[in-house]
Lab assay of single mutants.
Amino acid sequence: ENVVSAPMPGKVLRVLVRVGDRVRVGQGLLVLEAMKMENEIPSPRDGVVKRILVKEGEIVDTGQPKIELG
């Protein structure tokens, strides 16, 4: 899985990584606000952040790609 998608609709509060960052499985990639709760979205695997496809403040839909890992 190279693309991390939104598990639920919500607002991107914070992006916790930058392009080029090495990430580990379970590491937080971003914080999504859904139903007035903050949810940290974890990396599904070890890898390197290739692209960030969302911006802080953006509203995302379920299944929308957010971060691409290499």
Rank of each mutant, 00 (worst) to 15 (best):
E1V: 14
E1W: 15
N2I: 14
N2T: 15
N2R: 09
V4L: 08
V4Y: 04
V4G: 04
V4Q: 04
S5K: 13
S5D: 06
S5Q: 09
S5Y: 15
S5N: 10
A6D: 04
A6N: 03
P7F: 10
P7L: 11
P7S: 13
M8I: 09
M8E: 05
M8G: 09
P9R: 14
P9D: 06
P9G: 13
P9Y: 11
P9C: 11
G10I: 05
G10N: 02
G10D: 01
G10F: 06
V12M: 00
V12Y: 00
R14V: 08
R14K: 12
R14G: 03
R14S: 06
V15E: 01
V15N: 01
V17T: 03
R18C: 12
R18N: 11
R18V: 10
V19M: 05
V19I: 10
V19L: 08
G20K: 04
V23N: 02
R24Q: 11
V25Q: 13
G26T: 03
G26S: 05
G26W: 04
Q27G: 03
Q27R: 03
Q27S: 06
G28E: 04
G28Q: 06
G28R: 07
G28A: 15
L29E: 01
L29C: 04
L29F: 02
L29M: 06
L30Q: 00
V31P: 00
L32E: 00
L32H: 01
E33C: 15
E33Q: 11
A34S: 13
A34G: 09
A34R: 07
A34W: 15
M35Y: 13
M35T: 08
K36D: 15
K36C: 15
K36R: 11
K36E: 14
M37D: 07
E38F: 10
E38N: 09
E38Y: 10
E40I: 15
I41H: 01
I41L: 06
I41S: 01
I41K: 01
S43M: 01
P44M: 06
P44E: 05
P44H: 09
P44K: 05
R45L: 12
D46M: 07
D46R: 07
V49R: 01
V49S: 00
K50T: 13
K50N: 09
R51K: 12
R51Q: 10
R51A: 12
I52P: 03
I52E: 01
I52H: 02
V54Q: 01
K55W: 09
K55C: 11
K55H: 11
E56H: 06
E56N: 07
G57Q: 06
G57F: 06
G57C: 07
G57H: 05
E58L: 04
E58H: 06
E58P: 02
I59T: 11
I59M: 14
I59N: 10
V60A: 03
V60P: 02
V60L: 06
V60I: 08
V60M: 04
D61E: 14
D61T: 15
D61F: 14
T62E: 13
G63V: 04
Q64I: 07
Q64W: 08
P65M: 08
P65G: 10
K66Q: 15
K66C: 15
K66L: 15
K66S: 15
I67F: 07
E68Y: 13
E68A: 09
L69W: 06
L69R: 02
G70D: 14
